[in-house]
Design a protein around this nucleic acid. Structure first.
Lengths: 141, 141
DNA sequence: CATAAATAATTTGCATACAAACTTTTTGTG
DNA sequence: CACAAAAAGTTTGTATGCAAATTATTTATG
């Protein structure tokens, strides 16, 4: 690779960084980060999931999930409740405050997505989405 | 956004994560991380740059550059020398060991790029590269 | 059924990243 | 030239992420 700007790893990282920073700035009004948002998003779909389920869905390490939940719990947006059937596990529930954020945060996220992707045409976008999805799901070498 | 997997920020992050982890695993043989590699890459192009120049090129915060250089210096791959013309600045030089790594690390990086991108056709790849570049360079909203 | 293996969560340690504050030095302005 | 503004680097604090080790519990196996 002659120039670092030709390296796909670098390009992916910088594209991600750009979208992440934009979303971070917009979400900061609610004191929530982009990663915290995606975790909440999964909970808005379905409450009472196990930590390991959240990790699988978001493709995050268990240790990362623990830290994320610590902060969200600290902020009063979620709570851990012991599972009635498996004492190793706790089930993650939204607090009322956590539920309240669904609409405003989704609006911000949609807006950021729309803005960041507004530089592309429809066919381009569909292609990009397909390619990123394939790349992200690609099994290990 | 209905499903989090439709969110471009999420897709970009996961695609990046995949490529990053693959490269990290391959580079670990040399005790170097992907981010350290890109910094070295810029130095292989041209020695004796200022920290702030490296940050601009790599689009990294000054604090991040400081930490990166600390670790690379600790590892004996680079050294900071005071600038003869500006006492605020130090110029970053490769050590002999840092130079030695150019060929083997570039080989690994090229290989990772080739492997990770082998799932795409040529036209797809060109399109992806163009789109990621545009996205990464997009000015702030 | 006893025990090994697997699973869930956590803890610790390390490496990015950025924000904000601070120090030192250089530049620009009146 | 004096002094404000800008620039370079560092420090501190916070938030991801993963690896490796640990604990507690559950499942699978002989």
């Amino acid at each position: 690779m002659e120039r670092i700007e030709d390296c796909f790893g670098f390009l992916l990282g910088k594209a991600y960084q750009k979208v992440f920073q934009l979303e971070k700035a917009r979400l900061s009004e609610y004191g929530v980060t982009p990663v915290q948002f995606v975790l909440l998003h999964v909970l808005w779909e379905k409450d009472g999931q196990k930590g390991v389920e959240l990790g699988t869905r978001l493709r995050l390490d268990g240790a990362t999930i623990t830290g994320l939940l610590d902060r969200l719990e600290q902020m009063g947006l979620i709570e851990r409740r012991p599972s009635p059937t498996d004492r190793r596990t706790n089930l993650i529930y939204l607090t009322p405050r956590g539920r309240e954020l669904e609409k405003p945060l989704n609006e911000i996220s949609d807006e950021v997505n729309r803005e960041a992707m507004s530089i592309f045409r429809e066919e381009e976008l569909a292609m990009l989405k397909s390619m990123l999805t394939r790349l992200g799901l690609e099994k290990e070498a």
